[in-house]
C-alpha cells in the first residue's frame, strides 16, 4: 500500500509539472508571438510617426498658445484621439460652455469614421478583446494602414493591428504633450512636413487602385469630394461628400455587382 501511494504521488507530481511545463511553453510562445507582431508593426508606423509628430506638436503648440497646461493636450489626445476634432476642441474650450453644441459638432466632424467602421467590419472580426481598442483607436491613419497593410506571414493579424493602433496612439499623445511643453522652442524649419499625411493617402489610394479591377468607386469618391468641396467649401464639405458617395454606391449597386459577377466567371 505505501509503495503504491508513493508511486501515485510521484505520478501526480509529474503530471502537475508536465502541465506547468506546458503552460510555460504556451506563455513563451504567446510572448514571442506578441513580440513578433510588434516588430512587424513598427516599421509600418514610421510614416505615421513623422506625420503625427508634426500634427501633434502643432496641436500642443495651439494649446500652449491658448494658455492650457500640458496635462490638457495629454489627456485630450489620449481619450479623443482624433486630430481634426482636437484642434476644434481648443476653440470649444475657449468659448462659453455649450454641451449640446459640442456633442453635435464632434459627431459631425467624426462622421467619416462610420465609413471606416463599415469597411473594417470583416477585417476586425474575431480579434477578441483587442477589437475594442482597435475600434477606439480607428483614426484616419490607423484605418488606412490597418486596411491596406499586408500582414507578414507567420504574424498574428490581431496583435499586428493592435500594435499599429497602439504605436500611433503613443506617437500622438507624446507629440501633443511635447508640443505644449516645448511652447515656442520649436524650430520653424519643419514647416511643410505635414504633407506626409497627404502623401500617405496618395500612396494608399494608388495601392488600392492597382489592386482593384474596376475603378468606379474611386471615381465616385474623387468627384463627390471635389464637387462637394467646390459647392460647400473646405469647412463643411465632408458630410455632403459622404452622403453623395453613399447615395451613388447605393444607386449603382446593381450594375456594379453585375459587372463583378460577370468578370469573376
Amino acid at each position: 500500500m505505501p509503495h503504491e501511494c508513493i508511486i501515485e504521488k510521484i505520478a501526480r507530481r509529474n503530471i502537475i509539472s508536465n502541465q506547468n511545463i506546458l503552460q510555460i511553453t504556451k506563455l513563451k510562445n504567446n510572448y514571442s508571438m506578441i513580440i513578433k507582431a510588434l516588430r512587424a508593426a513598427f516599421p509600418v508606423t514610421l510614416p505615421i510617426f513623422a506625420g503625427y509628430w508634426f500634427l501633434g506638436l502643432s496641436y500642443g503648440l495651439c494649446m500652449h498658445a491658448a494658455g492650457f497646461d500640458w496635462i490638457y493636450p495629454m489627456l485630450m489626445s489620449m481619450v479623443i484621439f482624433g486630430g481634426s476634432l482636437e484642434f476644434v476642441a481648443v476653440q470649444m474650450l475657449l468659448s462659453p460652455y455649450a454641451p449640446a453644441q459640442v456633442l453635435v459638432m464632434s459627431l459631425l466632424i467624426q462622421a467619416r469614421h462610420i465609413f471606416y467602421g463599415v469597411s473594417m467590419l470583416e477585417i476586425y472580426r474575431g480579434t477578441g478583446w483587442k477589437k475594442f481598442y482597435l475600434i477606439f483607436g480607428m483614426t484616419d491613419e490607423t484605418f488606412a494602414i490597418n486596411y491596406s497593410a499586408k500582414v507578414p506571414a507567420g504574424v498574428d493579424k490581431g496583435w499586428f493591428m493592435f500594435f499599429i493602433t497602439l504605436l500611433n496612439h503613443f506617437y500622438w499623445v507624446s507629440a501633443a504633450t511635447a508640443g505644449c511643453l516645448a511652447g515656442n522652442l520649436l524650430p520653424e524649419n519643419i514647416r511643410g512636413i505635414g504633407f506626409v499625411m497627404t502623401a500617405l493617402f496618395v500612396v494608399i489610394f494608388i495601392e488600392q487602385w492597382l489592386k482593384e479591377k474596376r475603378h468606379v468607386s474611386a471615381f465616385i469618391g474623387f468627384f463627390c469630394a471635389l464637387g462637394a468641396l467646390a459647392i460647400f467649401g473646405p469647412e463643411s464639405f465632408m458630410l455632403p461628400a459622404m452622403a453623395a458617395i453613399a447615395l451613388l454606391l447605393a444607386l449603382l449597386q446593381k450594375p456594379i455587382r453585375k459587372a463583378e459577377a460577370t468578370s469573376d466567371h
Binding site: S119, L121, Q208, V216, S217, I220, L226, L249
Partner: peptide, 15 residues
C-alpha cells in the same frame, strides 16, 4: 458597401 467604400474613402481623404 464595405467592399467598395474604401476606394471612395481614400480618394475623399486625399481631397
Amino acid at each position: 458597401a464595405g467592399k467598395y467604400l474604401p476606394s471612395a474613402v481614400f480618394a475623399l481623404l486625399v481631397v
